[in-house]
Design a protein around this nucleic acid. Structure first.
Lengths: 229, 229
DNA sequence: ACCACATTAATTGTCGACAATCTAAAAAAT
DNA sequence: ATTTTTTAGATTGTCGACAATTAATGTGGT
């Protein structure tokens, strides 16, 4: 199913559609990481002209999913341990900022909605133990809402439109499912409380720590997978 | 004159050239902020086809200098007080991170080069009092080098390639010249010392404060200019 | 057998033209 | 006169073809 992301322009043009489709395929791995992209081939596959495909490639480059070299071509981003660290350092910093701002700028009803979402998670988790999709989407929603709560449009764009797809790509392809649910739940709860108390400093700190834990989790998985091959 | 920026792919293709040219014109204000962009007109002006121009527009969008709407068109970013705050919140966070990382990862000779740069600034300032260009370029160099020192490729790209042009645009068009030189010098010195002592926390804090001061400085200028008109 | 060079094939960059969409001016209706 | 509809103009999105550059193949020399 196609999860539609927040704060995204509606899909009107043909290149929009190609962009969204390719993005999903790259994140999910059907277009494999590190592989070269042939413009004529993919244009044929999506049934569009090369100009349209190139438009989509440009946008994919903007969210770090493909890399481009002049007169050489495009290739899908390669998932490496170094890049994971780099991206998470940035994410931690930015989402920490978002959380601090959210503590000041979130409306009471937004906080209320966040709490409801968390309770809903708890319910869903008990019922559908181990179902990864809900956990993925739920965690995503949680982070998205806090980022929105920062009320900083530039920051929101940076995180939700540019950075998050790459982060999802790591999570999905490392098979980050199931684990860490209960721990993440407690961490989420603590963050909400800090926001509700308008304690920006604490909220920022907790969010940074939460993301660091998430990073460590992915990292071990990554090391295991790379050691295997 | 054309200052060539660090970490940029060499200008090989025609759209590269148009991108660099338009970027300078937008930053300097010859293409005025907030104005609509006519693809056919600019294509003719730069002597390239629309496809080439659109490629350049895509890249300008990636560094936040133009905004695009489907089936409507492109317009140059508008300089507003709100956006200034938003961008500087992000900049402060990211460049703080860069500075903290630099304290750990910068090579001794890099730190040495940074100190020499600062001394050089002091000399140039005394000789050419009030000359804005050197101050601009010098300050830019200082920040660039520290960002490079973070050794985080993603962070470097984010700051140097994506965010900095917009920041320069504010500085240039607000006429940020001359003032704050001596104060900025002391702040730069303190930051270098923290980096040299591998005191990441202090370095981050000082950099954030330095950027906040810079923001306040621009903001007052902005308020003055907007109050006039 | 290995390396250097030339030639060929494939890929990317660029162009001009057409189709789809939006904006604005003119016409019609209330 | 004001609002709505229509129509015309202009702008953007998309396409297929050509030019320029790169990668691959084959050839000759040592």
């Amino acid at each position: 199913m196609t999860h539609t992301f927040l704060n995204e322009a509606p899909i009107t043009t043909a290149s929009d559609q190609v962009f969204v489709d390719m993005r999903r395929e790259i994140v999910e791995g059907s277009i494999v990481q590190g592989s070269k992209i042939s413009e004529p081939e993919l244009a044929k596959r999506y049934g569009v002209s090369r100009a349209t495909l190139r438009e989509a490639l440009n946008r994919l480059e903007s969210c770090y999913l493909v890399e481009r070299k002049a007169n050489v071509g495009c290739r899908v981003v390669a998932l490496t341990a170094e890049r994971l660290i780099e991206v998470y350092q940035v994410r931690s910093s930015l989402e920490g900022l978002a959380c601090r701002l959210a503590a000041d700028n979130m409306e009471p009803e937004e906080v209320k909605g966040l709490k409801q979402l968390l309770n809903q998670h708890l319910q869903t988790q008990r019922v559908k133990e181990g179902e990864s999709y809900y956990q993925e989407a739920g965690d995503l929603d949680f982070h998205y809402r806090i980022i929105q709560g920062s009320k900083n449009a530039h920051l929101i764009h940076l995180l939700c439109n540019e950075l998050y797809q790459l982060i999802r790509m790591y999570r999905v392809q490392m098979g980050m499912v199931g684990p860490r649910v209960s721990k993440a739940f407690d961490e989420h709860l603590a963050i909400i409380n800090a926001i509700e108390n308008h304690d920006g400093e604490l909220a920022e700190m907790l969010m940074k720590r939460h993301i660091s834990a998430s990073q460590a989790n992915i990292q071990t998985k990554f090391d295991l997978l790379t050691a295997k091959s």
